Simulated scan of single mutants.
Amino acid sequence: MLSIYHRRVLASLLALCSLPALARDLVVVSYGGPNKDAQVTAYYQPFQQETSLRVIPSTWNGEAAKIKAMVDSRNVSWDVVEVDATLQGRGCDEGLFERLDSKLFGNKADFLPETMQPCAMGMFISSTLLAYNADKLKTAPRHWQDFWDTKRFPGKRAMRRGAQYTLEIALMADGVSPDKVYQTLSSAAGVERAFKKLDQIKPFIQWWEAGAQPAQYLLAGDVVMSTAYNGRISNARKEGRNLRAVWLNNIYEMDYWAIPKGSSNKAAALRFISLASRSSQQKRFAEQIAYGPTNNKALTQLSPAALADLPSAPQNQRTALALDYRFWIDHGESLEQRFNSWVGRK
């Protein structure tokens, strides 16, 4: 006889597999680029084959105001949206996303911690790390301190234009261990320390705002090194470019699937997220772009060579800093304002 828990799980799965309510095509919104291309192969096409529903892909830059406007006007045209860790937490608090029943997506024990959230399901782990062009920089940088060493490594270096990642990197360059970064940044003295460190290289910084830019800057020789998303650097190498990544003290975070509050296509959206949470599909995604699966079973299905290039590989996790999205929910607005003011000062 089935337990109450197993009866509930079975009922949830039956509801998920019931497709009469899937009345229209599914609009899936991602951050674009190679990430979206990998999603097409691993998720969009298999979903279309299983359900006969067409996936209509779209892209965005993470502007929460777009979702808020749709939800507030009750005119929601997006069904599944890729969001970062901070937005999924803030959006859930603000009622922008549907609450999710995690049982629809599998056994929690099979996934990395933080994967299953009240309003979101983790899709992959990416890292922000130090990158350089080995064809143009013969001495390889080894850590964030080298990023600040303009004597040994003269020239411009590129950083993401924003407080997030930048302040953490500044503190690690100043000798703060990853496990103490957010404790330090939570104090006024820690914030001052981060900006004082950034002052040292401000004249040498070329800011980037789009994920494709670091690789472009490095290949063009505009900068000697850059912060970058690991997947972009890995893809450039696949194309024969001699770009290298430094994994020491990388900052990793999880991207999530979320359903905008009020979507009329919720049943299909849930079915899509369920498919995208399977180990087989996440393995396929990781083979297309070097972002780590959230399903632990997918990690065991990948080759050692593929695994070594992922943020979730043990050797890449060893000295890594996990982005604390809760910290950025609490402090992000004030720190971004402070950062923008700092950038604008000569």
Rank of each mutant, 00 (worst) to 15 (best):
W208N: 08
G175K: 07
K196D: 05
W207V: 04
A189G: 10
G211H: 09
P214L: 04
A212G: 01
K202A: 08
K196L: 08
K180E: 12
A188V: 09
Y182Q: 07
D174G: 14
G211Y: 11
W208Q: 03
A173Q: 06
D174F: 00
D174M: 02
A188Y: 09
E209F: 00
D199Q: 11
A210F: 13
Q200V: 14
A188Q: 13
Q200D: 12
P214S: 06
I201D: 03
F204E: 14
A194C: 11
I205F: 02
G190F: 07
G175P: 01
S186Q: 11
V191N: 03
L171F: 09
K196W: 01
K180Q: 15
T184R: 12
K197M: 13
A210K: 15
Q216F: 02
S177D: 12
E192K: 15
I201M: 07
W208Y: 14
L171A: 10
G211N: 12
S186K: 08
Y217M: 15
L218A: 06
R193H: 10
K197I: 02
D179G: 10
D174C: 03
D179R: 12
V181C: 04
R193A: 09
F204M: 10
A170P: 02
A173K: 01
K196A: 14
F204A: 15
E192M: 09
A194T: 11
V176W: 04
W207C: 01
I201K: 03
R193T: 07
S186A: 15
V191P: 01
A215N: 01
A188I: 05
S187A: 11
Q216D: 15
D174Q: 10
D179H: 11
G175T: 07
M172S: 06
A189N: 10
S177T: 14
Q200L: 13
V191F: 08
W207Q: 01
S186R: 10
A215D: 00
I205S: 04
K196S: 13
D174K: 08
A189W: 00
Q216P: 03
T184E: 14
T184I: 07
A173G: 15
